[in-house]
C-alpha cells in the first residue's frame, strides 16, 4: 500500500509547532482552560492525554483496514473510552491526590476532540509507525501548549512553578502580590487569548520573512 499521507517525521514535527493542537488547531480547549492553574496538574493531564492518544492511535491504525466507514467513529470512541478509563483508574490508584485535584477532567478526555481528530485524520489512514509518531508529536505539542498556559497562570496567581515558590514572595509577606484572578476561569481566558494572539502574530511574522526571502 502506497503511503500517500505525510511521512512519520513530518507527522511528528507538524504536531509540535506548525500544527500545534492548542495554538493552531484549537482542539482540546477544555483541559487547556480548566487544568492549567498549576504546572503539576497540567503536566499530569498532558501525560494522561499522551497515554490515551498514543494507545488509541496505534490500535486504530492496526485495525484500519477492517473499519466500516459508517461505524468508524463508534470504534474510535470505544477505543478512546477504554484507555481513558484505564488512565483514570491508574491515577486513582497511584496518584490519589492528583486525581482528586483533576476531578472530572480525566474522564472528560473521552470527548477531547484532539484524540478523535488524530484517529480520523491520521491513524485510520496510515501505517502504525506513522500513527505512533503522529500521536507522539501531537502529545508533545499539547504538553507544550498546556505548559505555556500553566507557567503564566501559576507564576502570576501564586508566584510558584511546579509548586516551588520563587524568589519574589516568601511567606505571608508576598500574599499581596498574588493575582488570584489568574487561578480562576477569567485568568484562563485572558491567558489563552493573549498567548493565542502572540502565537498567531509570531506565525505571521515568520511567514512574512519567508515570502520576502523568496521574492
Amino acid at each position: 500500500m502506497a503511503n500517500d499521507g505525510p511521512t512519520p517525521l513530518e507527522r511528528f514535527v507538524n504536531g509540535v509547532i506548525p500544527e500545534n493542537p492548542v495554538y493552531r488547531q484549537l482542539l482540546g480547549m477544555c483541559p487547556v482552560l480548566a487544568v492549567t492553574g498549576s504546572m503539576k496538574a497540567a503536566m499530569t493531564m498532558a501525560a494522561a492525554v499522551a497515554f490515551v492518544l498514543i494507545c488509541a492511535n496505534v490500535i486504530v491504525s492496526l485495525i484500519r483496514n477492517l473499519l466500516q466507514p459508517h461505524l468508524r467513529i463508534l470504534v474510535f470512541t470505544l477505543t478512546i473510552a477504554t484507555f481513558v478509563t484505564i488512565a483514570d483508574r491508574l491515577l486513582k490508584a497511584y496518584m490519589y491526590d492528583m486525581s482528586k485535584e483533576l476531578g472530572p477532567y480525566i474522564p472528560l478526555i473521552i470527548v477531547n476532540c484532539l484524540i478523535i481528530a488524530r484517529c480520523e485524520v491520521c491513524a485510520s489512514k496510515q501505517r502504525v509507525f506513522t500513527a505512533l509518531s503522529d500521536a507522539v508529536g501531537q502529545s508533545v505539542g499539547f504538553a507544550l501548549g498546556l505548559a505555556s498556559m500553566a507557567t503564566v497562570r501559576e507564576l502570576l496567581s501564586s508566584g510558584s512553578w511546579f509548586g516551588v515558590e520563587l524568589f519574589w514572595k516568601t511567606g505571608t509577606a508576598g500574599e499581596q502580590y498574588r493575582w488570584g484572578l489568574m487561578a480562576l476561569a477569567p485568568g484562563a481566558f485572558f491567558t489563552l487569548g493573549i498567548l493565542l494572539g502572540a502565537a498567531v502574530w509570531i506565525g505571521s511574522m515568520c511567514n512574512k520573512n519567508k515570502t520576502t526571502l523568496e521574492a
Binding site: 485495525i63 477492517l66 473499519l67 466500516q68 461505524l71 463508534l74 470504534v75 470505544l78 477505543t79 477504554t82 478509563t85 484505564i86 483508574r89 491508574l90 486513582k92 490508584a93 497511584y94 490519589y96
Partner: peptide, 29 residues
Amino acid sequence: GWLVIVLAACFGTALAGIHMALKDKIAAN
C-alpha cells in the same frame, strides 16, 4: 458490526482485569 462486538468484548475484559487489579489499592487510598 462484528468488529465493534469483538472490540467491545476485548476492551471489556481488559477493563475488568484492570479493575480487579487496582480496586483494592483505590479503596485503600
